[in-house]
Amino acid sequence: MTVDDDGETTPGLERVEPGYRQVLRIHNLLIWLPLVVGSVVLDRLVLAETPFGGLLMVLVPLLALMTVVIAPQRVWRRLGYALEPALLRVVRGWMFHTDTLVPLTRVQHLDIARGPLDKMFGTASLVVHTAGTQNSTVTLPGLSPARAAELAGVIRGHIQADPDAA
């Protein structure tokens, strides 16, 4: 189940693995590291003799720290999913809330993806490819590898049992 900002439980949604927060933290860190180094170098070489000297050396690392520490927890808290009899539901976001419903009859094929960070923290992503062009790929990150395989098996079984799928 997923808990919203007010502490209320959203019925029927499951949370992804807690290790996914660490994957997000390291991913954010890898993005911010060159920006922090670049801002420090720019500040020391270009802005040192101006009234703005030292500003980038403080603001960019502070913003990076907030993004690496706070954002992953917020993303994780707002990511939930449910496998219902005829569809897969993936819910994410707060300010830009997205509630994606994937009818299982539209599923073309499934992938289970695991990058190095996923392997390190025991997570995987279920990638659902559907018929159509717009939003034809739905990714559900942060699952345990066993849960991703279980969901893929259930969806695959539904596709094979559907007489209209061919």
Rank of each mutant, 00 (worst) to 15 (best):
Thr2Met: 15
Asp5Val: 11
Asp5Met: 15
Gly7His: 07
Glu8Phe: 10
Thr9Phe: 08
Thr10Met: 14
Gly12Asn: 06
Gly12Cys: 08
Leu13Phe: 13
Leu13Trp: 09
Leu13Ala: 04
Glu14Gly: 05
Arg15Thr: 13
Arg15Phe: 05
Arg15Gln: 15
Glu17Gly: 01
Glu17Ala: 15
Gln22Thr: 09
Gln22Phe: 08
Gln22Glu: 08
Gln22Met: 07
Val23Leu: 01
Val23Pro: 01
Leu24Ser: 14
Arg25Pro: 03
Arg25Gly: 03
Ile26Gln: 01
Ile26Trp: 08
Asn28Glu: 08
Asn28Ile: 02
Leu30Arg: 13
Trp32Ile: 06
Trp32Leu: 06
Pro34Gln: 10
Pro34Lys: 09
Val37Asp: 00
Gly38Arg: 02
Gly38Ile: 01
Val40Gly: 02
Val40Thr: 00
Val41Lys: 07
Asp43Lys: 00
Asp43Asn: 02
Asp43His: 05
Leu45Ala: 13
Val46Tyr: 07
Val46Lys: 02
Leu47Gly: 01
Leu47Phe: 11
Ala48Asp: 13
Phe52Val: 04
Gly53Trp: 09
Gly53Met: 06
Gly53Ala: 06
Gly54Cys: 06
Gly54Asp: 02
Gly54Ser: 05
Leu55Val: 13
Leu55Glu: 04
Met57Arg: 10
Met57Phe: 05
Val60Leu: 06
Leu62Asp: 00
Val68Asp: 01
Gln73Thr: 14
Gln73Tyr: 08
Arg74Val: 14
Arg77Val: 05
Arg78Glu: 11
Ala82Thr: 03
Ala82Gly: 09
Leu83Ser: 08
Glu84Val: 02
Ala86Glu: 12
Leu87Lys: 12
Arg89Cys: 03
Arg89Ile: 15
Val91Asp: 12
Val91Lys: 15
Val91Gly: 01
Val91Ser: 14
Arg92Asn: 11
Gly93Ala: 05
Trp94Val: 10
Phe96Ser: 13
Thr100Pro: 05
Thr100Ser: 12
Thr100Ala: 11
Val102Glu: 01
Val102Phe: 05
Pro103His: 04
Pro103Arg: 04
Pro103Asp: 04
Pro103Met: 00
Leu104Met: 13
Arg106Leu: 10
Arg106Val: 09
Val107Asn: 03
Gln108Trp: 06
Leu110Val: 02
Leu110Gln: 01
Ala113Cys: 07
Gly115Lys: 13
Leu117Asp: 06
Asp118Gln: 11
Asp118Ser: 10
Lys119Asn: 15
Lys119Asp: 07
Met120Ser: 10
Met120His: 15
Phe121Cys: 11
Gly122Pro: 08
Ala124Met: 09
Ala124Lys: 08
Leu126Arg: 03
Val127Leu: 10
Val127Asn: 07
Val127Thr: 10
Val128Glu: 02
Val128Ile: 14
His129Gln: 11
His129Thr: 14
Ala131Leu: 12
Ala131Tyr: 05
Ala131Ile: 12
Ala131His: 10
Gly132Pro: 08
Thr133Asn: 14
Gln134Leu: 15
Asn135Cys: 05
Thr137Val: 15
Thr137Trp: 05
Thr139Ile: 12
Thr139Gln: 09
Leu140Ala: 04
Leu140Thr: 00
Ser144Met: 10
Ala146Cys: 01
Arg147Gly: 07
Glu150Gly: 12
Glu150Asp: 13
Glu150Lys: 14
Leu151Arg: 02
His158Gly: 15
His158Ala: 07
Ala161Arg: 14
Pro163Val: 02
Ala165Asp: 06
Ala165Gly: 05
Ala166Phe: 07
